[in-house]
Design a protein around this nucleic acid. Sequence first.
DNA 1: CTGGCGATTTAGACAAAGTCCAGGCAGCGG
DNA 2: CCGCTGCCTGGACTTTGTCTAAATCGCCAG
Lengths: 147, 147
Amino acid sequence: MSEVVAIPVLSEEQATARLREHGILPTQQRLQIAQVLLTRDQHLSAEQVLELVNATGKSVSKATVYNTLGLFAEKGILREVNVDPIRAFYDTNSSAHHHFYNVDTGELSDIDSGQMPVEQLPVAPAGTVVDEVDVIIRVRNADPVKP
Amino acid sequence: MSEVVAIPVLSEEQATARLREHGILPTQQRLQIAQVLLTRDQHLSAEQVLELVNATGKSVSKATVYNTLGLFAEKGILREVNVDPIRAFYDTNSSAHHHFYNVDTGELSDIDSGQMPVEQLPVAPAGTVVDEVDVIIRVRNADPVKP
DNA sequence: CTGGCGATTTAGACAAAGTCCAGGCAGCGG
DNA sequence: CCGCTGCCTGGACTTTGTCTAAATCGCCAG
Ligand SMILES: [Mn+2]
Ligand SMILES: [Mn+2]
Ligand SMILES: [Zn+2]
Ligand SMILES: [Zn+2]
């Protein structure tokens, strides 16, 4: 028997509004993606987004998922997070914040801003301007206690 | 006509010593790789290392380059740097330091330690311990001056 | 020496993530 | 209703990296 899982989605109106705010034309597919993504703070890979969207019944192609995530990141709705050379993650929390990355589980979690002092930045190389500061704290599962 | 370019290499003795210090058995291939890599601070992708080694005349297989870079990173001779979802970079400066990443050129450069205040770390998630802190400052080429 | 043995290396098949392309579709303005 | 522009799509393709099975290496006991 097939399992039915409720996937929380944003209303179409709210999704449309979010896209418009960022100057993105709200097409069918972009709305599908926005509705499943923007319900809460989460960190998902492109493949996970593809699965999630298609799990809601509506289907969106791989090419469109990649194009849309790229567009959303460019327009500032999403933030691309690079912790792993094998895939990118997209972060629905686009405000400036940092991450813990558990190298054992692959889990990515936000660092509570305020926990992380905003350090003074070093001078950027000549001819360049700072775009973004990413702090990734790699953590491992603690060893089980010794007897 | 083929161009002859001098590729600086570490002496075999020095390379052997570096490997032994880190508990790595110095085989032919590992020495080849160590000799071209460990001459100076640099940030190279696996494919670049493969080209560089093979440009010295001696040839090492792709599988061995990947295995060796992984081993060197595990043993602490190299540090893997993830800035780009499509490939990993290996950093011959294995001491704790941070990076500028030019998103326009793909260039990776070290941040002079001392320029980067050592921030107090947030508390790691329950059951985990901090392994490494990576700070990546993404920079863009500055726009050409307006008239 | 010589044979054996675990560790290393290798070519090439394979896999995963992402990009590209040519054709089809959607939706708006006229 | 037509035509234009941008968007979407399946599927081929590329790149980076991993895996496998067989060959080779370095070393040592006999
Ligand atoms: Mn890897
Ligand atoms: Mn990318
Ligand atoms: Zn986040
Ligand atoms: Zn470095």
